[in-house]
């Protein structure tokens, strides 16, 4: 059986689409977060650490209170706190934002693993805790529709939240006052400052929103995608988010498409047995795609700049001719 036939087999399997949509969620959320941060002119590289801390504290809060929603709120609160911490170090103490991200990731992965052992005595995963999962939503009526029903019904409530956040964040970014300020600060902070818009405050709002999205992603990882926290479970998704944002030109809708691209290959790699291609090679595809995407994006930006320069020079030369004739 050729690879193509196997691929067709996988693509005609309704369960694949369910996996596809759920693997996309923990990429989409941090990607949206990075997109917001990029819009204000800051690179939030700390999503790995935020996701890990949120996933961990979510599980702990859920297990100790017996209420998974408390766990969710704890994860969101962690996102909020991390957003404030990142803002404090990056904006007030003026640490390079990339280094803040690296430090946050160190602290996040270290603290979550350290405290996991303290709280549970486990070294790799909190399987001994009864932390539960957030509700999965069955869609009666729709459930029976082939493909669509299988793919949509039974997804976690946070999956719905994640996909709904795409229009919500688009609205925030393009239709609200805060969004206008975020984009202004990102594009020309001096312009914003000169009319009394506080650059630091706006950046802080954006970084907090960004980090809260990372917190929700953490909650999804440990309370939906898997029913427990495991060491390093973010698995580099925070870094993928940076790439996905860059390829999406920092728009929420674009982030959805690039996240789906990564999610697709992730899902495909779980089906690689049927594909007859080594799973690891399938997993390399999104990273390869990113490299190519980055280059395409960079070439486009360069081309645009060159055209603008040429037009400028052209206009200037013409203007001079005109002036010479007039004189």
């Amino acid at each position: 059986m050729s690879v193509l036939e196997a691929l067709a087999g996988i693509l005609s399997n309704p369960n694949f689409y369910f996996t596809f949509l759920s693997t996309t969620v923990p990429i989409l959320l941090p990607t949206l977060g990075c997109a917001i941060a990029e819009n204000v002119g800051s690179t939030n590289m700390g999503q790995e650490g935020i996701m890990l801390l949120a996933a961990f504290f979510g599980v702990i809060a859920s297990a100790y209170t017996g209420n998974v929603w408390v766990g969710f709120l704890a994860a969101v609160a962690i996102g909020l706190l991390m957003g404030l911490a990142i803002s404090y170090f990056a904006l007030y103490l003026q640490v390079d934002i990339i280094l803040v991200g690296i430090a946050v990731n160190l602290v996040g992965s270290g603290l979550s693993a350290f405290l996991m052992y303290v709280f549970t005595g486990d070294r790799s995963a909190t399987t001994s805790l009864q932390s539960g999962t957030l509700p999965f939503i069955d869609l009666p009526g729709i459930k029976e529709i082939p493909y669509i029903g299988t793919a949509l019904s039974g997804q976690s409530v946070l999956a719905w939240v994640a996909y709904l956040l795409v229009p919500v964040l688009s609205f925030l970014l393009y239709k609200t006052r805060l969004g206008l300020r975020i984009r202004s600060v990102g594009e020309n902070p001096h312009a914003a400052e000169s009319v009394g818009v506080s650059v630091n405050k706006t950046k802080m709002y954006a970084l907090v929103i960004s980090s809260v999205l990372g917190g929700i992603a953490g909650a999804y990882l440990s309370m939906s995608y898997l029913p427990y926290f495991s060491k390093g479970m973010s698995g580099g998704r925070g870094y993928i988010a940076l790439a996905a944002t860059a390829m999406a030109n920092n728009t929420p809708v674009g982030s959805l498409w690039t996240s789906l691209l990564f999610g697709f290959f992730y899902a495909l790699s779980t089906y690689s047995g049927a594909l007859g291609v080594p799973a690891q090679l399938v997993t390399t595809l999104p990273y390869l795609a990113t490299l190519v995407g980055l280059v395409v994006f960079a070439i486009r930006v360069q081309g645009k700049e060159r055209r603008r320069r040429q037009e400028g020079a052209h206009a200037a030369a013409e203007g001079d001719d005109g002036a010479a004739r007039a004189a």
Partner: peptide, 30 residues
């Protein structure tokens, strides 16, 4: 990629890391 097209070095190197890992894992297991 950066030298020729100014591709973002932070993102591209992070992606290269995973590319190397999975290529390595494939070589190892396969």
């Amino acid at each position: 990629l950066q030298y020729r097209w100014k591709a973002n070095i932070v993102v591209s190197t992070l992606m290269m890391n995973y590319l190397c890992l999975y290529v390595g894992l494939w070589l190892l297991f396969d």
